[in-house]
Amino acid sequence: MNYFEELNKDYRFKEGFHTCINCGTCTAVCPAAEFYKYDPRKIVSIVQTKDNNAIEALLKSETIWYCGECMSCVTRCPRKNGPGLVIMALRDLSIRLGFFTESEKGRQIYPLTKALNGNILNYGYCVHPETFKYKDHPESGPVFEWVLNNKKQVYGRLGANYQGKGPGALRHISQEDLDELKAIYDVTGGTERLELVEKYSQAKAEQMGMSMEEYTEFTFSHCSPGHFNNED
């Protein structure tokens, strides 16, 4: 497969990839480059070479998963590139080809896919208090532990229509509306994407000698040394 041609079919790539003059402005403003061993200039530069082996190495690397998609680089690039958009296209291709399981940060696509799409298809929202667990989010603080322990009381007090009928914050989304979302996933390749991620992740879990439950927990929580600038 010619990876460059494949990337070029992605609309985000069409929007975000033009000639790069290697000025490094994107790297200078990038919040990911600040802490991670990450350099958006280098990534755009590698893609620009159209070198198939080099692009394949990127697709299997840790580095394409360091970007935060903040798009700060888009504002600043003097050539109107969007390194963040190039990253989105690289990630998409890496997932489609199953290369994402080759890196620790890439494997995180599994817990992300499960959690976010589970929320969308079951609750109608990407993030939802019903599945937001304090043990996974100790940073949400004792005050949010209190909210989660008193959802009906606190959300009710604050004017949400918690699990209620009709409009309002945190309302119950009807099965008909959820069915429409599912139909959209079916028609647009969303469902196929979930199945693909499941398939590649299962194979990787088996190779790593883990059950899917262990794999989910491990990929969600484990951070090996070596990702950050201040580490060897």
Binding site: I95, L112, L116, I120, C126, L181, Y185, T188, G189, R193
Partner: peptide
């Protein structure tokens, strides 16, 4: 419903 934005920017759904 959601716009799907977080799932999209976490690269878990196609464009």
């Amino acid at each position: 419903t959601t716009c799907g934005g977080i799932a999209y920017h976490c690269d878990t759904i196609p464009q």
